[in-house]
Design a protein around this nucleic acid. Structure first.
Length: 526
DNA sequence: TGATAGTTGTGTAC
DNA sequence: GTACACAACTATCA
C-alpha cells in the first residue's frame, strides 16, 4: 500500500444479503474504517473447479443470488462486490500480505460445516500469526437463531431429539415475553452506506491477486449447457426475490401462516401453476443466506400475535425449530454425515450398491409414477415438496430399493436448491429410519398413494404426475399411480404401453417392503 | 415396570 | 368420513 489507511475486508460467505448482516453492519458502523473490500469467493472445495460438485439448478440459483447481491450493493450502497475464485485462506492471506498494516479488520459470518470450521480456524490462526495488526471476526448466529457453538459448548447441553427438547433449549436461551412469545434476536436493517474500495489498490490487477479475481459476475465460467438444460423456475435467486417472497407468502398471508400445518400442505398446490410450491418456498433463500432466519421468525411471529395459530411441530415456527435442532446436532454429533462412528446412526447392513436401481431412481424411471415425477421435478428444477422428499427417500432406502441412504443424500446435496449439509444429512438419517428420532422403521410411505394417503390430495387429481411424466398424459387418472395395472386396451388408447413407453415397476412394492422390513429388523437385532 | 408418546402411515371395515 | 388394526421401535415419565 502506498498511503496509510484503515481497510476492512467483508467476506460474504453464507449470508448473501444486505439485510440483517452483522459483518456488513460492523464495518459500516465503525468510523475508523476508511475503505472496504466486500468479497465473495467461489471455493472449488465447495462448488468444484468448474461447478462439477453442484447441479445446474444450484449453480443457477447461486449465480442469480450473487448477481442480485452485487446489484443491490451497487444501487443501495454505491459499492462494488468483488468476485474471486480459489481457496479462501490463500486469497485472504494474499490480500492481508498486500494490505499490510493498513488492514485492520477481516469480518465474516459463521459456518458450522466441518470444512467451513477448519477453514475458519485456519484463517484465524494465520491472521494471529502473520497479520496480527488485523482483527478477525467471524460473527456467530448468522445462519441460525441459536449460537451453535455457544449452545453446544454449554455443559448442560444434551443432544435434542424431539420438539420438546429443542423448545426447552429455546426457552432457556431466549426466554419469553409477557405473551409467551420467544424473545429471539431482532433482525437488523440493511446499512445505507458503505466505505469505498481502497483508492490505490485493485485486486484485479495486482500481480499477487489478479489470478483469483474476476471483473464481474458475468466473467464466472459456467457449463455451456446450463442455460438450455433448465425449465422455468419459480425460484429466482437473490435477496430481492427472497424478501419479496417473504412478503407474498408470509407477511401478507396471515391466515395461511396461522393455519399452517406442514403435513397438510401437499393438497394446496396452485392448480394454475404446477411449479409453485404449496409451502412458503423460502428454504432456498435461507440456504444461501439471501434471507435472514431472524427476519423470517419475526415475520411469522407478527402474523401469530393476537391471533389463533398452529403450534410446533406443525407450524412454521415448528419448521424453523427443527432446522435449529438439526444444526445443533450436526455440530455436536460426531461424523454427522457418516454411518460409521456416528452415534445417531443405527448399524443397518445395506449391502452392495445396485446400479440399476440407483439409476432408475435417479432418472425417474422406476415405473412408480409418483416417485418418478418427484425425481424428474428435482432434476429439472432443483425443488421437491417436503412430503415428496419423504416418499422418495423412504422408497430408495428401507421401503423398496434397499439402497444406502448416503447415495440419496448425495444426489439431494448436489441438486436441491435449498441444499444444506446439516439439514440434508438429518433428513436422510431420519427418513431412512437409522436415526433415533421418532421414526418407527416399520412406518412406510406408499409409493402409489391413494386418495386417503397423506401424500395424496393434489396428486389424486393426477395433475402433478402428468405434468412431469408426459408419457402418461392421456392415462385415465384411475391407473396413473400404477399404470402397469391398466388393461392393454386402456394403455393403447392412452398411447402409452407400459414396458415400452413407460417402464414396468422396478420391484414388487409390497413384496420388497416386506423383505426390507425383515432385513431392517435383522440388522437391528444383529 | 408399565404406560405413553413420538413433526406429518396404510389399509380395511363400517 | 371415522375407527381401528397393523406392526411393534425407543426414550421418557410416572
Amino acid at each position: 500500500m502506498i498511503s496509510s489507511m484503515s481497510v476492512a475486508i467483508v467476506w460474504f460467505r453464507k449470508s448473501l444479503r444486505l439485510d440483517d448482516n452483522p459483518a456488513l453492519l460492523q464495518v459500516c458502523s465503525d468510523p475508523s474504517i476508511q475503505s472496504v473490500l466486500p468479497i465473495y469467493i467461489l471455493d472449488p472445495e465447495i462448488h468444484g473447479k468448474s461447478f462439477e460438485k453442484i447441479g445446474y439448478a444450484r449453480i443457477r440459483f447461486l449465480l442469480e443470488s450473487l448477481e442480485d447481491l452485487s446489484t443491490r450493493m451497487n444501487e443501495k450502497l454505491g459499492q462494488k462486490l468483488l468476485f474471486a475464485q480459489g481457496n479462501p485462506h490463500e486469497i485472504l492471506s494474499a490480500l492481508a500480505r498486500i494490505l499490510g498494516s493498513d488492514l485492520c479488520l477481516l469480518t465474516s459470518d459463521y459456518c458450522s460445516e466441518p470444512y467451513g470450521r477448519i477453514l475458519t480456524d485456519k484463517i484465524e490462526h494465520s491472521f494471529q500469526e502473520g497479520f496480527s495488526q488485523s482483527k478477525v471476526c467471524f460473527h456467530q448466529a448468522t445462519h441460525t437463531l441459536l449460537d451453535i457453538e455457544a449452545t453446544t459448548a454449554d455443559p448442560t447441553f444434551k443432544n435434542p431429539k424431539n420438539m420438546k427438547d429443542i423448545l426447552r433449549i429455546f426457552h432457556s436461551r431466549f426466554g419469553t415475553d409477557g405473551n409467551g412469545f420467544l424473545q429471539t434476536p431482532e433482525p437488523q436493517s440493511a446499512p445505507t452506506s458503505l466505505q469505498p474500495l481502497p483508492g490505490d489498490f485493485d485486486p484485479l490487477t495486482h500481480p499477487e491477486t489478479a489470478r483469483f479475481f474476476i471483473s464481474d459476475i458475468s466473467g464466472i465460467w459456467v457449463p455451456p449447457s446450463l442455460k438450455e438444460s433448465m425449465v422455468p423456475s419459480p425460484f429466482k435467486g437473490g435477496e430481492t426475490e427472497g424478501l419479496d417472497r417473504l412478503k407474498r407468502k408470509v407477511s401478507q398471508q396471515t391466515d395461511f401462516v396461522n393455519s399452517f400445518r406442514k403435513p397438510k400442505t401437499f393438497s394446496t398446490n396452485d392448480p394454475a401453476n404446477p411449479l409453485e410450491p404449496s409451502t412458503t418456498g423460502l428454504s432456498p433463500y435461507l440456504s444461501v443466506g439471501c434471507l435472514s432466519v431472524r427476519r423470517l421468525w419475526k415475520e411469522v411471529e407478527a402474523c401469530n400475535r393476537g391471533c389463533e395459530h398452529t403450534q410446533p411441530p406443525e407450524s412454521l415456527h415448528g419448521q424453523l425449530l427443527f432446522r435449529e435442532m438439526f444444526y445443533l446436532l450436526s455440530r455436536s454429533v460426531p461424523n454427522w454425515d457418516q454411518d460409521l462412528d456416528n452415534p445417531m446412526c443405527k448399524p443397518i447392513h445395506w449391502g452392495e450398491k445396485d446400479e440399476n436401481k440407483l439409476e432408475a431412481w435417479t432418472n425417474g424411471d422406476t415405473g412408480f409414477p409418483f416417485i418418478d415425477a418427484m425425481m424428474r421435478q428435482l432434476e429439472a428444477t432443483g425443488w421437491m415438496h417436503h412430503l415428496g422428499r419423504h416418499a422418495v427417500s423412504c422408497f430408495l432406502t428401507r421401503g423398496q430399493l434397499w439402497q444406502h441412504w448416503k447415495t440419496g443424500r448425495d444426489l439431494f446435496e448436489r441438486n436441491l436448491i435449498d441444499s444444506d449439509w446439516a439439514l440434508n444429512n438429518a433428513n436422510w438419517l431420519w427418513l431412512s429410519g437409522v436415526a433415533p428420532f421418532s421414526m418407527p422403521y416399520f412406518r412406510l410411505y406408499n409409493p402409489c398413494p391413494d386418495g386417503k394417503s397423506s401424500l395424496n390430495a393434489e396428486t389424486s387429481t393426477a395433475r402433478f404426475i402428468k405434468h412431469w411424466i408426459p408419457e402418461l398424459k392421456d392415462f385415465p387418472a384411475k391407473y396413473v399411480y400404477e399404470p402397469h395395472l391398466a388393461p392393454q386396451s386402456a394403455q393403447a388408447e392412452a398411447k402409452c404401453i407400459i414396458g415400452s413407453d413407460y417402464p414396468n415397476p422396478i420391484v414388487d412394492r409390497k413384496e420388497a417392503a416386506k423383505q426390507n422390513l425383515a432385513k431392517f429388523k435383522a440388522s437391528l437385532q444383529a
